[in-house]
Every structure is written in structure tokens, then in C-alpha cells.
């Protein structure tokens, strides 16, 4: 190209065009660039939404006592809201893989009056004689432990353990007129947040210790747990 005034070749402009030629893009390349940006914006948006939804689910699962099965090969359990005082409910998941699980109830075991309570965390102190073992099929189940509240202030209250709404064990437990709430405890491995447990582990759904109201009243201990067929493990 000539310079109109001097008639010389405009070297600077040519050099500039030559040096910038590698930064000129075809329409298809520009479309590819825009598509790339759009795809990665979508990736970041989805990732952000997934994280936010996961956080919401943690909160909602706790509020709704939702059983979350994170590992299909592990036992999972969540404590459901109690319907009445002194009653408890759980939703559990038992895997199809070995070992098979059973629902074990031990107690109520009576200790002598004027003695300290049994050590509830050690299941071995519970008598084998007062042990009921119920096989549980793989899948999701509901377990209820409840009093018969129709007879208040009696010394003995009918107590039930239900599996999927059907009574699987019925026994007498000393009523509130015999034991005192102060000093009596109820502990559990479960909570209102769903939890998975290591394979072959024992899950103590409830360990209840009832302290006698008077020195002449005995103390009682009762435990409901999920136990692998091979025996209890800690």
C-alpha cells in the first residue's frame, strides 16, 4: 500500500497487520469460545447449586428425621420424634450383605436396692438370661418402644417393642411411681440426624437406667440394640 503523500510503502501498517494476523479469529472459533464459556458457567452454576442443595438437605434431613443411606452395605439409623413421654422410635436400614442383623432386647434387669446403677455402656454386664433376639430382614424398618399409658401411677406398666408396627416383645417394666426421673437416664448411639455405622458394628438404640424412687426400690436397666449375627462388637 502506498502513502498518498510520499508514495512510499507504509511499512509500519503492514508490519502491524502481519504481527496481528495470528490474533484474528474466524467466526467458528469465536463460536467455540462462546460455547466454552457458556458450558463452564453452567458447570460452576450447577456445582454451586449442588453444594447449596446438599447444605439444605442436611438441615431438612435433621428437621424431618430422614433416614439417609450413604452406604448400602452399612447399617444406618435415625431417631424419630417420640410420640409420647418415655417412648422412643427409630428408623433403621439393614444391609442385604452379611452379617445378618437381629434386634436384641436385654432386660429389664433388676439390681439390688441401695446399690449403684449398672454400667450401661458395657453390654456384657447384662444378663444373657433376659435376652430376646429377633431376626431382622434386610431393608428399612421402624422400631417402636412404648409404654401403655392407660394405667398411670401403677407400679408395673406394660411395655412394648414393635417392629414395623407389630408387637414383637411385651414385658412389664416398673412404672413411674416406682422409679424417679432424677438420676434415671436414657442414652442412645442414634440421634435425630441419620448416621451410618461401620460394617458388623453393634448399634445401641437405647440404654435405659431407672433409679428406684426409694432406697428399698431396685434399680433397673434395659437395652435395645441392633447386633450382627456373629455377636456383639463395640
Amino acid at each position: 500500500m502506498h502513502n498518498a503523500e510520499t508514495g512510499d510503502l507504509d511499512v509500519d501498517a503492514q508490519t502491524l497487520r502481519t504481527s496481528n494476523s495470528s490474533w484474528r479469529w474466524s467466526l467458528s472459533t469465536l463460536l467455540l469460545m462462546m460455547t466454552t464459556i457458556a458450558v463452564w458457567v453452567a458447570v460452576f452454576q450447577f456445582t454451586r447449586r449442588v453444594e447449596q442443595t446438599r447444605m439444605d438437605l442436611v438441615k431438612l434431613s435433621r428437621l424431618s428425621a430422614n433416614l439417609v443411606i450413604t452406604d448400602p452395605n452399612a447399617v444406618a439409623a435415625v431417631a424419630l420424634p417420640a410420640e409420647w413421654a418415655n417412648s422412643s422410635r427409630w428408623k433403621i436400614y439393614v444391609p442385604a450383605t452379611l452379617p445378618a442383623y437381629r434386634l436384641v432386647l436385654q432386660g429389664p434387669i433388676q439390681s439390688k436396692p441401695n446399690t449403684t446403677l449398672l454400667i450401661s455402656n458395657d453390654v456384657t454386664v447384662l444378663s444373657q438370661a433376659q435376652r430376646v433376639s429377633i431376626p431382622i430382614t434386610p431393608g428399612t424398618h421402624t422400631i417402636d418402644y412404648e409404654y401403655d399409658l392407660g394405667r398411670p401411677n401403677e407400679t408395673v406398666e406394660k411395655t412394648f417393642v414393635k417392629l414395623d408396627g407389630k408387637i414383637v416383645h411385651e414385658f412389664d417394666l416398673p412404672g413411674p411411681s416406682v422409679w424417679q426421673s432424677s438420676g434415671s437416664t436414657s442414652t442412645s448411639d442414634t440421634s435425630d440426624s441419620s448416621r451410618s455405622y461401620p460394617v458388623s458394628s453393634t448399634v445401641k438404640l437405647m440404654t435405659q437406667e431407672l433409679r428406684g424412687r426409694n432406697p428399698q426400690n431396685a434399680n433397673y436397666i434395659l437395652q435395645i440394640r441392633l447386633e450382627p449375627e456373629s455377636g456383639p462388637s463395640q
Binding site: T36, V39, F46, V50, T53, L57
Partner: peptide, 27 residues
């Protein structure tokens, strides 16, 4: 980049739809 991003976006979209359905159920 489009292929990798598209694959991740589709996967994340599937995860999001599953989680969102569960969120709606609990809600």
C-alpha cells in the same frame, strides 16, 4: 474443553435434579 465441561455439566445437572427432588420431598 467443551466436551469435558459438557460432561461435567450433565453429571452435575443429574446430581442436582436428584438432590432437588429429595429436597422437595423433605420440604
Amino acid at each position: 474443553s467443551i466436551a469435558v465441561g459438557g460432561w461435567i455439566a450433565i453429571r452435575q445437572g443429574q446430581v442436582f435434579r436428584t438432590l432437588y427432588a429429595e429436597k422437595m420431598r423433605l420440604t
